[in-house]
Amino acid sequence: MDLEINRQRFAIDVPADTPLLWVLREECALSGTKFSCGKGLCGACTVHINGQPMRSCVTPVSAAARSSITTIEGAANDPLLRLVQETWIEEDVVQCGYCQPGQIMAATALLRQNPKPDDNAIDAAMAGNLCRCGTYPRIRAAIHKAAAKLPLPKGAR
């Protein structure tokens, strides 16, 4: 099976029902996407499939074939993702950091679809991403700050 991840092709050989999460982590050496609940309940494993935020722990890899997958490692080809990551650094969001790849992927998907989200929109988009360290106030601040930097300068895409 061929996968397109962060604009790169990966030929992999796994059963079709293997969750995308484990394919990323174990076959593609992309360990930035995190395993936490394994049941679609926490958002730690969030990636983008054709720009949509998806829980990779409950997405069979077959459902992601012939799609464009972006992970937390894919910022080189995704200026918006890079901008969100930079804003996260500026706002000192992270604590243990384990949930943050998922938070950042969820926030990036939100901003792509709604560049000026209000608090309710943020609550709705981020409700599925748990953070046991409780970094929520700074995540909220970082999303607002990233939104204030949008739109991206011309030429970036």
């Binding site: 930035g32 937390i72 996260w88 992270v94 950091g97 943050q100 950042i104």
Partner: peptide, 8 residues
């Protein structure tokens, strides 16, 4: 530790 953590 932020740069490492936000980039996975």
């Amino acid at each position: 530790d932020s740069p490492l953590k936000v980039r996975g």
